[in-house]
Amino acid sequence: MITNCVILAEPQGTGIAPVALELATLARGISEQVTAVVFDVDAQAAAETLAVYGVTSVVSLGDTSSHLPGVPVADAMREVVDRVGANAVFVAQSYTGRDVLARLSVLLDAPVLTNAVNVREDDGGLVVENLVFGGEKVVSSKITAPIQLIAIRPKSVAAEAAPSATQPSVTEQSVSANSQANRAVIVSSHVEERQGPKLDEAEVVVSGGRGLGNADNYRYIEELANLLHGATGASRAIVDAGWVPYAYQVGQTGKTVKPNLYLAVGISGATQHMVGMKGAKNIIAINKDKDAPILQIADLGVVGDAQKLLPRLIEAIRQKTGA
């Protein structure tokens, strides 16, 4: 039986990341007590949001922003786990979530399961589901250690408000920055300006792949996304090739997106990519190769040369919208 679940509600902007509410929704479904650990945010404001999603207590670690969060947050979470007697920990499959979970697993000498798309209770324990082979197969696994350390892919479960809001207690806990491992210092932070909505929150995502021909042609993707008020994404192939940064990558090793429309241009549909986008409501794919796997899952597949088709499509949208 899971009685006590600790979730990591990581910061994003000035508040907590939306995925924290997904974690809270999942946690309260299997555990009576849900403790959320927050840092680098206004703890009271975070607690008010988390209360709506059924979190029963909040622990604030204050400001950790000068160091990489992995070490100090994991050290503090270990204390929280011991104090509340937690038997499950949920984090997001994010940069921070993975770093924290990795260190926590060493501190507790317990294994991790990551990339979870669902966690369900079964026979007193937890069964964790993740996708392999581009989302064709669901693997159900179980941790046999006394504590379940799990990273959940954002957008896997919908955040739903609890039937009635809770009144979580808020406690402060200091973090120690003295450990030998905590030598990684953040010297400066840089925001890369991207226009339009965030990739994992956009209603429309336009992604490009090798079929664009060259890096310069990625401008068509940007223009289309702009016209459709969407975000731009990419296949691993063009991220590896250095055309666009890693932050653009959609897929197993990148972001999971679930937009209303996913427009895949010149992406063949390697399993690696499909797992990150097959949850889209509508999929349009443009590909030269009529046997490309992506056409097998697209609602509308166009067999053609993206370099020729995209300028015409952009022009047609311009005419219709007057943009």
Binding site: I186, V187, Y246
Partner: peptide, 9 residues
């Protein structure tokens, strides 16, 4: 790499 850019560490 961060969610919206990068940090120098």
């Amino acid at each position: 790499q961060t969610e919206d850019g990068y940090d120098v560490v």
